Amino acid sequence: MFLALFLVTAVLGKKATPTTPEKAPEQEAEANQTLDVSAEDESMELMKEWDEKMQGFVPEDMITFEIQARGEEEFYEVIDIVPSTIRGAWFLASSNSKDIDFTIYDPLQNVVFERKAKKEAIFHIDAKRQGIYVFVFKNTKVMTGHSITFTYNSGNSTNTILKSEHLTPVENNLLGIQKSIKDFQVDNQFAQLRQETHFKTVASANVNVFWFSLIESVGVIAVTAWQIYYIKKLLDNRRVL
């Protein structure tokens, strides 16, 4: 029995001997580092764009919707007063893959904003025509649907009644506090949604790793048991001879 276990261990050890060149782990680590740097740069650019274009942003609406594989979803916004500003953001709430094409059309069906193969985006456009503006989301994934969180705001740039010089210092301070609170609320909502998405992704990965490990363990046990049985049978046959 000890000999059988020794042979099984030797066979498994031989099968597990890596044949990959020594430089492969270094190349893989370098590739992973490049991907991490690229993702970090993209995140920094997004934060910079938010600071530049989304100051004082208050969501007019925020929704989370499902888009099927190879599917398309459209949203409409009617602009009655021009000039107006349409701005907002969206991100994938179910995955980190870049599978979404996002386009905004003006009332004449001209493309006024477009992003291809993204997992999140910030948009800021000046609406100069009255009519219906269309927000189009397209899922380029063939087999997988996605959950998208989408928020926007549209407002007229000429609807300011009071100017800053008309306000007292106390009122200015109160308006500044109100603006800071609204900014914090919006940032907190987005951070919470992104955190929930991250937790779901990690949980899904853990489940996949668990089942893979379980199947692998069952396979190893089955192969080991069969080899022990086979070797024992060979030894029994030799004794008979």
Rank of each mutant, 00 (worst) to 15 (best):
N153R: 15
N153E: 14
S154P: 03
G155C: 08
G155I: 11
G155V: 12
G155M: 13
N156Y: 03
N156K: 03
N156M: 02
S157E: 12
S157R: 14
T158K: 15
T158R: 15
T158I: 03
T158W: 06
N159V: 02
N159K: 04
N159H: 03
T160L: 06
T160G: 04
T160E: 04
I161T: 10
L162A: 06
L162Y: 09
K163S: 04
S164H: 09
E165N: 09
H166Y: 02
H166K: 03
H166E: 09
H166R: 02
L167S: 00
L167Y: 00
T168E: 10
T168G: 08
T168C: 02
T168H: 05
V170P: 00
E171C: 01
E171A: 07
N172R: 11
N172C: 03
N172D: 02
L174M: 10
L174A: 06
I177G: 05
I177F: 08
Q178K: 12
Q178D: 09
Q178R: 09
Q178H: 06
Q178M: 09
K179A: 13
K179I: 05
K179T: 14
S180Q: 13
S180Y: 05
I181E: 14
K182Y: 07
K182G: 07
K182T: 09
K182N: 12
F184M: 08
F184T: 06
V186C: 06
V186P: 02
V186G: 01
D187V: 02
D187Y: 04
D187P: 00
D187T: 05
N188P: 00
N188H: 10
N188Y: 11
N188V: 03
N188M: 08
Q189H: 07
Q189R: 10
F190W: 14
A191N: 10
A191T: 13
Q192Y: 15
Q192N: 08
Q192C: 02
Q192W: 11
L193N: 12
L193C: 07
R194Y: 10
R194L: 14
Q195N: 14
E196T: 13
E196N: 12
T197I: 01
T197F: 03
H198I: 12
F199P: 00
F199S: 06
F199T: 08
K200R: 11
T201Y: 03
T201E: 07
